[in-house]
Nucleic acid binder design. Structure first.
Lengths: 330, 330
DNA sequence: TTGTAGGCGTTATCAC
DNA sequence: GTGATAACGCCTACAA
């Protein structure tokens, strides 16, 4: 079913069909009707390939993430897809987790889209440079600013400080940070610096390897069994924190009575954990939505200088960080 | 950067460049080198649009889902993307939640892919028929078989019966099913029929509207406050069940002492809920992986008759359904 | 108001 | 072995 068949059926040229469908250029009312009738009868939809080739654009955005396991990426993705869709752009996904030859995959993706959202440090730095050089429109979420691309992140330092201050108010004196920063300049690293700037030498960092429930569980078990058990465990994110809660329960420790635990992100499970998890809420949906809009600006050329934004976050105090005189429920 | 520039630089024709790059047809060793050198220097990558147009295929799959809020869709999507990627196909996503003009979106998607995975009943029936008529390769996940498309689902009835039997073994006599079937012939409907076939008149269905924590919470609260409080609540899925747990806690009811609760899916939060949620595990990742493979068969033409498969599921007994002499931990 | 024709970037079929 | 050249499906000056 091509535009030629529609044209033949309607007794006009393909140019007229195109004009009618796109509303570009003038078309006589009668002609228009004939065309629409033919389109209807033949159930014609312009080939996306033809359109893209002629228009010189894909009307599609890419998104690169490590995994979709936790709720974080899914939420951001959802916000991204929603806005992209509003703007008439499809979204092509690419997960890098456990993938070999990531470079090839990214390059292939780059050939299918007008621009892409890349999470944190999922793409090796040299490749990033090459993409920038190739003129691919890029917006990074959760990484430090770099030249030639937009970056978008949510605030870490201030909320980390606020969280640390709250824990200190509980009177705790020995702390541990679970989920040590793997790469510098990423979200977790900022959280670590934030809490440390408040707690100083009273907090020690513990590496978990990955940011998963399992890793959190394992590291927390070791930590809680040790001689100098910390009074409070600040976790890099909610999933690690859920692992810590599990470890505490298995060891017969009361949370927050024996040990306090906090997370980061405010994923669904945080609210349903027992005790409910004190954490920091970040606007995941909004992050995705903004990324889509930023990309659109870059692609349409409304803007051509990279922008770098930081979205606000806020601690959500629940039960896992300690007892509160007046119950706070969120 | 087009194939013409490469050809010019290498001093050959575009046909030779194409042959060299694709390994189709013979190319003299010397010529080949010249071409590869030019390609290297110009950093040339064939335009995906050009290739697709000429090849007559997109090398891309679509996927239509309502939302990505819970872990269920994300997991299936992940399995789907992984296999699709292995098979050299990109994945274009489309969320229908809160979207108007779904028909147009789906049609646009259909024009960008060689085939698509559609969840349950996210697409109106007439449109499904039209897609089938248009020859779009389709595989449905979680819906009843229909002619002209593959369907893939996980088992519901048997596991529902097993779950119901387990609850009956606990000695309970009054039950409620939370999350009444909205459409017949879907997963939840089968679960409902399964448990009812075992519990008979002892179980009553309660509509929750949506399958979310909030809806589950609301419906459970009403139910547990009522005169004839059920002894056990079988929920349509884990999220509704989490809502029920929350409701019970707020009302000061002990789970499973006062009321037992079960879910379905075995999402991450199920294991971390307190008490840990008894549920039914379904192979979400596998569902997605199989869908991608089925689609590939359909697209490449290895198979042209629709296939309909059902994947096995199994109850996961934890703490929320009642006390067990020998603790089972999963 | 409508039609012709060139271009978008490949692949693949023929001749040579 | 290699090179024209016709698709592939559409958009859009430009001409009529």
């Amino acid at each position: 079913m091509t535009i030629y068949e529609v044209a033949r059926r309607a007794g006009v040229s393909i140019a007229t069909v195109s004009r009618t469908l796109r509303g570009t250029g003038p078309v006589a009312a009668k002609t228009r009707e004939k065309v629409l009738k033919a389109v209807e009868e033949l159930n014609f939809t312009p080939s996306r390939l033809g359109v893209s080739l002629a228009e010189g654009r894909h009307a599609a955005n890419g998104v690169v993430f490590p995994d979709l396991a936790g709720p974080y990426y899914a939420e951001v993705l959802l916000g991204y897809e929603e806005v992209a869709s509003e703007l008439g752009r499809s979204v092509i996904i690419l997960s890098t987790k456990g993938r070999t030859r990531v470079g090839d995959l990214i390059k292939d993706l780059a050939g299918r889209v007008d621009g892409m959202l890349i999470f944190g440090h999922t793409v090796p730095e040299p490749l990033v440079a090459e993409l920038v050089r190739l003129g691919v429109r890029l917006v990074f979420v959760s990484r430090d600013p770099l030249p030639g691309a937009d970056t978008l992140r949510s605030e870490n330092t201030a909320s980390a400080r606020a969280l640390a201050a709250h824990l200190a108010d509980h009177g705790y004196e020995r702390f541990a940070f679970l989920g040590a920063p793997l790469t510098s300049h990423d979200d977790v690293d900022e959280r670590w610096r934030g809490v440390r700037s408040v707690l100083g030498g009273a907090i020690e960092a513990v590496d978990t390897g990955h940011y998963t429930v399992e890793c959190g569980h394992e590291a927390a078990t070791k930590l809680l069994k040790g001689r100098d058990r910390p009074r409070a465990i600040v976790c890099s994110d909610d999933e690690v924190a859920l692992g810590a809660l599990l470890a505490a329960e298995e060891l017969g420790l009361d949370v927050p009575g024996d040990v306090a635990v906090t997370g980061w992100d405010d994923i669904m499970a945080a609210r349903h954990a027992r005790p409910a998890l004190t954490t920091v809420r970040q606007p995941m949906r909004e992050l995705g939505a903004r990324a889509a809009r930023a990309l659109d600006e870059l692609i349409t050329g409304v803007r051509d200088t990279p922008s770098h934004h930081t979205l606000a976050t806020a601690p959500v105090i629940r039960a896992s960080c300690g007892h509160h005189p007046q119950e706070v429920r969120t």
